[in-house]
Design a protein around this nucleic acid. Sequence first.
DNA 1: TTGATTTACTAAAACGATTTACTGTGCCGG
DNA 2: CCGGCACAGTAAATCGTTTTAGTAAATCAA
Lengths: 334, 334
Amino acid sequence: MKALSIKDIALKANVSITTVSFIINGKAKEKSISDAVIKKVQQIIIDSGYKPNQIARSLRTGNSNIIGLIIEDISNSFFSRIARLIEDKAYKKGYKIIYSSTENNVEKAQELINLFKSRKVDAYIISPIKGIEEDIQILLNENKPVILFDRNLPELNTNYVGANHFVASYQAVESFIKQGKRNIALVTTDIDVQQIVERYEGYKKAIIDYALPYSEDLVLKIPFNQKEESTAKELKQLFKNKDVDAVLFATNYLAISGLKVLKQIDKKLDENFAVIGYDDHEAFELHTPSISTIQQPLEEIAETIIKLILNQLSSKTKLPDQQIIIPAKLILRN
Amino acid sequence: MKALSIKDIALKANVSITTVSFIINGKAKEKSISDAVIKKVQQIIIDSGYKPNQIARSLRTGNSNIIGLIIEDISNSFFSRIARLIEDKAYKKGYKIIYSSTENNVEKAQELINLFKSRKVDAYIISPIKGIEEDIQILLNENKPVILFDRNLPELNTNYVGANHFVASYQAVESFIKQGKRNIALVTTDIDVQQIVERYEGYKKAIIDYALPYSEDLVLKIPFNQKEESTAKELKQLFKNKDVDAVLFATNYLAISGLKVLKQIDKKLDENFAVIGYDDHEAFELHTPSISTIQQPLEEIAETIIKLILNQLSSKTKLPDQQIIIPAKLILRN
DNA sequence: TTGATTTACTAAAACGATTTACTGTGCCGG
DNA sequence: CCGGCACAGTAAATCGTTTTAGTAAATCAA
């Protein structure tokens, strides 16, 4: 029950392998193969259900029509949604996506890059972490299109698509201030990537611009892979601080953890205490009361990423790098 | 800047390609290569950073150390969570996972199977849909390990791992009845797959066993890809029916839609009106009040799938098919 | 001492495609 | 009638591995 090969087709059609290959790859006209032969071979291919072996093809040509997507964690809804959008859009253009999660683990990220490299993916879409700059640089040296998204690695010269986290976070804090909040906390993660830093800086700038006292005590940095219970403990402490009247969460999963803790300690969200989340999550809208959040335009981000990739892939020469910053939107609910 | 090949290593080490290959594949001892040569070659490999070309390797051996995972929709948290678990577990055993979504589209599913086939994945994990039985049968004929999960296709003789949806759904309805509910609705989807049918049958059996009147009017079948607005309209109608005092949702996304509608029409969840969800979702626990749900044991399902796959892959002969049904748990909240 | 076995290693085929460089014909212009 | 060119197609090299079927030298048993 072995799969058919191009040789079998050539044999059946009584032509050479070369001829079959030309026909499959649409080079028949150019190579002046007669219409009769083209028809015959195509019919045989259809009848026999022959599918070219992509592995052999990749070995020979060095590419694969596959785009590799490397993200932090597929079970985070921000990433799974964007993965889905990218997948859809790429699929329509004849590209397949294969994706995998790094879990913010440098080694795993490196292995994934190597996996994708050894599978000869045509291009890379990466939400990167510190520590893989070199590995990405190698891809760039090999002239592979690389699009970073969600987070940038400024030391690399490549393409980047992301939201304007600084502005978004500034606006969120500003909206708190306009509601009369004075002691605004930020709950963020300790991972040292640009988009997280930007969120912090937007927060800080707003506090300072509006002449509120900035205090380190109001900034809670939760280690990325910290156990839920420890996180809950830290959050509880923060929420029990009577002075705190507003909290901005820098990621959706931190917001979810925060909301769980609030529920547990039965602290109400009302005119005395407000929160804003990040990246949206179905639970935000559904929550009572609904949770305001900073929404990244997923559709637009996915679209832009795919457009950049396809441009690169279809161009013979290296295109200039682009850094595309898309505004994020503050969604105020209730 | 071309990548090194085994040839380069052989040249540097002054041995044949064959020797290098044996050493790389741990067959050196068996093929009686001297320790001195082994050391030398290994050192050169390390120093040069040589990585075998997996494409060439796959072409020659016909396998890839990659497991293909085909799911309905990666942006559904049930699937993204299970994908993540499967990925983790496979990774620890030296296998990589590549995944893609079918969106319940037969054609896309078929294309994905072909994609994976042409990439020579070693095994398939599939949450199948009706209409791809033949394609899966072809895989089975080629002796590829196939594990179906979440949904079974009973006409296929292969492995299946899934939860006991009939019992879970029966118990959910039972718990409603014990709370004194009399007009229990079911909101489900129209996709005709076993696990959905089971959920319906568990519902129906419980209604009948407890001598409640069964009525088609209380069963709402929402088409899979229906626009959110139409779904909302149908749900609204159902909820406005004053008689309905409890609703079981057959999927998590339907439950989310339902909760959104309830919020919108401001219908409270109290002693007069209760709901139970399916598959859990962060929003369920967080909701006020918390939403009870039927929880599938994701960890156990993922573990079982991987175990089955690895058994198959490591066994020379075809192992007997296994149908593993894992109990789902009704989580009552509040 | 000799034939068999073991040790240490290698040449070359194979996997299934793509692609380069050909070959032979027929026709056309001068 | 001959050189050149378009046409229709093909042989063979190639991508980078694995693996089969060796070979030559060393060792061993009798």
